[in-house]
């Protein structure tokens, strides 16, 4: 599999580490135990298009949001995480 890193270009799978579903959002500090429990443990097992967290540890160390079809492994989009990159946009 190959992932096109927005910073480094197309790179081989071995440079990346998979984390999992990029959908769940870390609950606010006051969201309560149930919300955090859901966030930590409950994951959808998606057969089809899914957005995933990947880490380009063998390259620029950016976290990427990869849109991938888990049935075909087709990657349709790769975006940097909100905080990826060296300089803050607009800073």
């Amino acid at each position: 599999m190959r992932i096109t890193c927005p910073f480094c270009g197309e790179r081989e799978l071995g440079e990346f580490t998979y984390l999992g579903d990029a959908k769940p959002v870390r609950p606010a500090a006051d969201a309560g135990e149930d919300a955090v429990y859901d966030y930590v443990y409950l994951r959808d097992n998606i057969a089809g298009v899914m957005s995933e967290n990947w880490y380009h540890g063998g390259g620029c160390r950016a976290w990427l949001k990869v849109t991938r079809n888990t049935l075909t492994h087709e990657i349709s989009a790769v975006e940097p995480a909100a905080g990826a990159g060296a300089a803050k946009v607009g800073a």
Partner: peptide, 22 residues
């Protein structure tokens, strides 16, 4: 060492992108 770096980058880039830190 490597895993903590990865974890902290995840915290910085994905969980807390609003923080100005490198």
């Amino acid at each position: 060492a490597g895993l903590v770096m990865q974890h902290l980058e995840f915290c910085r880039q994905v969980l807390f992108p609003e923080l100005d830190v490198q």
